[in-house]
């Protein structure tokens, strides 16, 4: 019964919070309207979300978000330095391939987004069998080090969060 009314409880909760932020007022009216919108959207779009992603361990999620935010700032400083002080023709840009251990689509999407927002790397494509990501690097010396860094720093954590 609850399954049918609330196919995705987490999605509904997120939508309620976003609605309250959008209205910018925590009134009973906005909470009720948010609940209506959250339930309706989750129900109407449940056709497109046949499976439920399992998100566990909130502490790990918070740790991961913290690490990613820190890395975003650091990477922007690095990219800013490269843009401002280097001759663009001397940048050693190349593609690297990151083999994936993570299997769930959600984890791969999160990993690809993280790679794009972090130091000098940009995820371009995922291979057809979802076994490897192709990543474009702005300026690197050692491709193997970048690959192992991505795998240890992000993929291990993501695999523990999204099983």
């Amino acid at each position: 019964m609850i399954e049918r009314i609330l196919p995705h409880p987490v999605l509904t909760a997120v939508l309620v919070v976003v609605w309250i932020m959008l209205v910018n007022a925590l009134t009973p009216g906005s909470v009720v309207m948010g609940m209506i919108v959250g339930t309706a959207v989750a129900k109407l779009t449940s056709v497109y979300w046949p499976e439920r992603a399992k998100i566990g361990r909130p502490l790990l999620v918070a740790e991961y978000i913290g690490i990613v935010l820190y890395d975003i700032v650091v990477s922007s400083l690095q990219v800013a330095r490269l843009i401002l002080f280097r001759n663009p023709h001397t940048l050693r840009s190349q593609f690297i391939t990151v083999p994936l251990d993570a299997r769930s689509p959600e984890a791969i999407v999160a990993l690809a987004g993280t790679i794009t927002l972090t130091p000098g790397t940009l995820s371009v494509d995922v291979s057809d069998d979802m076994r490897s990501l192709s990543v474009h690097c702005l300026d690197i010396d050692d491709p193997a080090a970048v690959v192992s860094d991505i795998k240890q720093r992000y993929e291990q954590r993501l695999m523990r969060i999204l099983t």
């Binding site: 990219v79 800013a80 000098g120 702005l138």
Partner: peptide, 28 residues
């Protein structure tokens, strides 16, 4: 940071390199 991102868009040599500037610097 936004200026740096746009500068990267204008200055870098290769279209794939140009993607790096706006996606990181402008977002920050």
């Amino acid at each position: 940071f936004m200026l740096v991102g746009s500068l990267g868009l204008a200055r870098l040599a290769d279209p794939l390199q140009r993607l790096h500037g706006p996606t990181k610097a402008t977002t920050v």
